[in-house]
Design a protein around this nucleic acid. Structure first.
Length: 472
DNA sequence: GCATGATCATGC
DNA sequence: GCATGATCATGC
């Protein structure tokens, strides 16, 4: 029910019932923020929380608070306004992660999950989705739909484990090492304009850490969008019994499921699952079958929500790895306009987990399934070493300094950072052939070329080997 | 021998 | 037609 309360600030409404809140929220559908805003808040372009404030004030008749309680405290509902975007292929995605409350490092570590600021504030969410259109002003952005969101049990267990992981890291004095890619659905994202003014003290360490907020990953939000807002897409879960997640992590459960297949040859696995494909992602298909998903593992619910990318590693008999690991090609024109903090490369590694699927050659040179590892790049490697690779590549493209010389057979040597230049990664071609190119923003000085063979950032084979050292 | 450049094979 | 995952070929 809705109560009228008389306060010193005048009359204000109190929603005590979730259904009343939801009913009121449904009236927003199809409206623009300009139509809702009675206070002219959106004229202030610096007011980032503007959309949420407009709806709280003008639509629900609430005064703004920013305390540790949910927005609709009596009903225990926290309201969030969040953008979705339409993709070129017609599907919809979340435009960004959903940022929740700031983490108080000092108090949060003294609490259990149920007592935590995170749970206290975000147990039930009212999500209001608007369609982001960059051609339109803030007042003309339109609301698409609203949703009262309570976590499904399977998500809840994973989120609880994520919270625990974040909490453990802060307790250990490692708040400065927190990466969004550490966790599955709930992450600790940077909060603050930049490193210069966002650094705060943390418990159990003298090193200052970036201020951080809880956030649901963009991948998690996208799956919500596709299930509840635009479409009813569902994907098969790997962990069918959520209660299994009480005693084991997601990674441990996968390992357990895969243990019967350990040491089986690739050939036997293919025969077992009736797969004839010679596709280069055959191992991804095999892994899906081993985990009981029909098809590619990247289509499972957990992999989509947590943004996990499977990668195959082939371990030699002498415990080395022959090949480095490729990523998607970058566009030269995009690269030179990026800042490191918002770059595609940094974004990839700070939000993505990788599932290393390790096959090992036996003494007869037969490939056998060996082990898996869920991995994400430590922030230090990303912001120190790998950043240098990115910076050098950017500078070279910017200066048109790409080709060093051309061999008799026409093979070109470049100035791009090589494996020996950097402990983490390097830059190499990644294309169908040398004629498969992207435009260059600056002509190559030596050759005068205006387009160049697609290149990718690669992870060094030696770096990969280090990351799986504990398994071999 | 292996680092670096080039290209393959499939499927969406 | 090309993105993606992967592996081959050249030359230092």
């Amino acid at each position: 029910m809705v109560q009228l309360n008389y306060t010193t600030e005048g009359i204000c409404l109190k929603y005590t019932d979730i259904n009343d809140i939801y009913l009121k929220a449904t009236e927003l559908k199809g409206k623009t923020f300009g139509e809702i805003d009675k206070q002219g808040r959106l004229d202030n372009h610096f007011n980032k929380g503007g959309y949420g404030h407009v709806i709280e004030e003008s639509h629900f008749g609430y005064s703004i608070n920013s305390d540790r309680n949910p927005d609709f405290n009596e009903a225990g509902v926290e309201m969030k306004v969040t953008p979705i975007k339409k993709n070129k292929n017609g599907t919809y995605s979340a435009k960004e992660r959903l940022v929740l409350n700031i983490i108080n490092f000092n108090t949060e570590i003294t609490k259990t999950f149920r007592e935590s600021d995170f749970w206290k504030k975000n147990e039930i969410l009212l999500l209001i989705f608007y369609l982001y259109n960059k051609e339109l002003s803030r007042t003309n952005q339109k609301i698409i739909d609203s949703l009262i969101y309570k976590y499904p049990e399977s998500d809840f267990k994973i989120i609880k484990n994520d919270w625990q992981h974040i909490n453990n890291k802060i307790k250990a004095g490692k708040a400065h090492e927190l990466s969004e890619a550490d966790t599955m659905y709930l992450g600790a994202c940077p909060k603050g304009a930049n490193k210069a003014n966002g650094m705060i003290v943390q418990p159990n360490s003298y090193i200052k850490a970036m201020r951080r907020a809880y956030a649901f990953k963009q991948s998690y939000m996208t799956s919500l969008v596709r299930k509840y807002v635009k479409g009813n897409e569902t994907n098969k879960r790997i962990i069918s019994k959520p209660s299994d997640l009480e005693k084991h992590s997601f990674e441990q459960l996968i390992k357990k499921k895969l243990s019967p297949y350990k040491n089986m040859t690739e050939i036997k696995l293919k025969r077992k699952f009736g797969i004839n494909s010679k596709a280069k992602n055959i191992n991804e298909i095999l892994l899906g079958e081993m985990l009981g998903i029909d098809g590619k593992i990247s289509k499972s619910e957990e992999f989509i929500k947590a943004n996990i990318i499977p990668k195959t590693i082939r371990l030699n008999t002498n415990k080395t790895i022959t090949e480095s690991m490729s990523l998607s090609p970058f566009k030269y024109e995009e690269l030179i306009n990026e800042l490191w903090e918002d770059s595609n490369l940094r974004h990839l590694f700070s939000s993505t987990k990788f599932l290393f699927v390790i096959f090992k050659f036996d003494s007869d040179k037969v490939l056998r399934f060996y082990d898996i590892k869920l991995w994400n790049m430590p922030l230090e490697d990303l912001d120190q070493a790998f950043k240098k690779v990115w910076q050098k590549t950017k500078d070279l493209v910017n200066n048109g300094d790409i080709v060093k010389r051309i061999s008799k057979l026409g093979i070109r040597t470049t100035y791009f950072p090589t494996k020996s230049d950097n402990p983490v990664g390097h830059v190499r071609p990644h294309a169908q052939n040398a004629q498969n190119t992207y435009p260059l923003p600056v002509k190559d000085q030596l050759t005068g070329l205006e387009t160049y063979t697609k290149h990718s950032f690669w992870l060094n084979n030696t770096y990969i080997l280090k990351q799986i050292k504990d398994l071999i």
